[in-house]
Design a protein around this nucleic acid. Sequence first.
RNA 1: GCCACCGUAGCUCAAUGGUAGAGCAGCUGAUUCGUAAUCAGCAGGUUAGCGGUUCAAGUCCGCUCGGUGGCUCCA
Length: 676
Amino acid sequence: MNSSPDSKTPATAEEIAVTLPDGSVRQYRRGVTPREVAASIGRRLARDAVAARLDGDLTDLDRPVEANAAIAIVTADSEDGLYVYRHSSAHLMAQAVKRLFPEARLGIGPPIESGFYYDIEAPRQLTPEDLRAVESEMERAISEDLPIRRFELPRPEALEFVGTRGETYKVRLIEDLPEEERLSFYQQGEFTDLCRGPHLASTGRIRPGTFRLLNVAGAYWRGDERQEMLQRIYATSFRTPDEVEAHLAQLEQARLRDHRRLGKELDLFSIEPEVGGGLVLWHPKGGMIRRRIEEFARQRHEAGGYEFVYSPHLGRSWLWQTSGHLDWYRENMYAPMEMDDGQEYYLKPMNCPFHILIYRSRPRSYRDLPLRYAEWGTVYRYERGGVLHGLMRVRGFTQDDAHLFCRPDQMPEEIDRVLNFCVDLLRAFGFEKFNAYLSTRDPDKAAGTPEEWEAPTEALRAAIERAGLPYEEDAGGATFYGPKIDLKFQDAIGREWQCSTIQFDFVLPERFGLTYVGEDGREHRPYMIHRALLGSMERFFGILIEHYAGAFPLWLAPVQAVVIPVSDDVLEYADTVAERLRGRGARVDVDRRREGVGYKIRDGELQKVPYMLVVGKREREAGTVSVRRRHEGEAGTEDLETFAQRVAREVAEGEAGGGGPLHGAAPAATLAGTIK
RNA sequence: GCCACCGUAGCUCAAUGGUAGAGCAGCUGAUUCGUAAUCAGCAGGUUAGCGGUUCAAGUCCGCUCGGUGGCUCCA
């Protein structure tokens, strides 16, 4: 759609050729507007049009077209259309704010993922009540149906225009724009804003109820903490009120899944101020889940040719000087400890130097490679107080870290192996939708030559393609020490998370002088790859809690079954049942409280225990259990041995991948997607 | 770190500047019960901490501590 008509359809003095998305070419008079083009195609299209793509650029419907061009009409129901809709909604909000607070100064107000925001310098702190008032004012401006008009001003006039209105931030925006940039403004009623556009034709095109102002938060001007802080009003915005409601419902759903809330309710972990922010206490149940994850991953790693190593939490400054961490990572490292030998020791922010020294502890032959050193290594990184967030952003965490050392000729296969290994591992937790991101060399700050980057970068790309993963390339996005793949996956409610990273490193083998002796008897430099798949155990646990909404699948559940005796008469049988199941490796509790069955079941449901086993006299006589599944209710009476076998089978299925039976751990739609 | 908001019993939340309260959880007792809450009683607090205003502060002001939301998705 970006291609203009070719020379076979030349523009004449009064006619131009317009190429439409379907490839057809139509003749129009010079100066025709996209709106007129839309009208000539169909009344419906003209009605739904909100903007146009002119040779690929978003533009207004009323911008005259002066030359041959490719035009695509943008309707409200497209991605572009939503972008324009939200952008105009942001302007509407700014207009409403200015009506209520004429002294307010405007920063920027772009569309974002699920809505828009506007940064504003207001005369006072805005309250939730203010936001309601702004919403009402927005509805009023909609009912006024103010036409939205675009005009351009030369730079000096533009500066004067915003300057006389006291819009100091707009002045700075213009000053920062390149000289040759055309400066456009959009006017609706008494309100005018500097803006690139495009916008809807009038405020009446915004449907009431398609936006909701959510909250106000501080945001630095231009995101720079040295600059002044503005108030950012976040709003959600969609094409229809139903979508807004659905989004608000999803926010509520996310709130209910919040791992901090569930962590407390299910007694999984806590973060105590007395310990310190970002330092996690794993309670027994959280610890059980973590051990299941770690054990499972460890077995997979051993089967995958990894060897496990251990390294200390501290190391002398020499390590970090040599690795370069003290140069480029210092602000994330804790202050050194001076020991009695006068040496400075640092808490480790990463495991790599230790693994490297293991490699370097003896001469290596080309026959030894590849070497794959894995460690669930606990690292400490200083994070500023304001960024800490539950388990997601912490100061002490355990990585499922590994370092691969290999010969150049082994490198493509190593990459293939580790990427597939990673995807397999994540699938076991019920994640199915993946996106890869390939970060390539930044010429301005890259170690090594472009030629050195070539082979690894292409190996990474080839591995992604062979794995059949959708991917995007972040050209120049790599860190200075090598290209990398970041892998993201979607959770049960469609949120995307990045945990896995596979990174080449040209720098550390050099700095530590790593070598191996080749077939030719000479020393060669090995390739080195850092990789963490689950990333941080803490963060991955937080993601899992939210993904499963606290209802862990059987193989991970800290308590897999709770035995519920109907009365004290059958306590003994309840204990027998529990013991028999424990003997088969199941994690079973008995609820011995003198409460009714309903009470204990309710408690089991709230604690999200996968199986509840009600036992009374009937079961005792028959040697059975009455099985109840979490979220599903009664599932019939079963012979104790049959049940034990079922649990063993379901645990094995869970560990085998595909997440195993979740028993209502996620909404049905997601369940279907997680079981192969 | 910065801006804003918040901090009352273990948890969730009440209390026009005028005697700190409820539900759940906990403990004690009774109830022996069949698939999402049995009943009664008891206990639980320096209202995060420190200072100030006031006859009087959970409430108003200041500081400290802690938590929460956010801090380029660039006109």
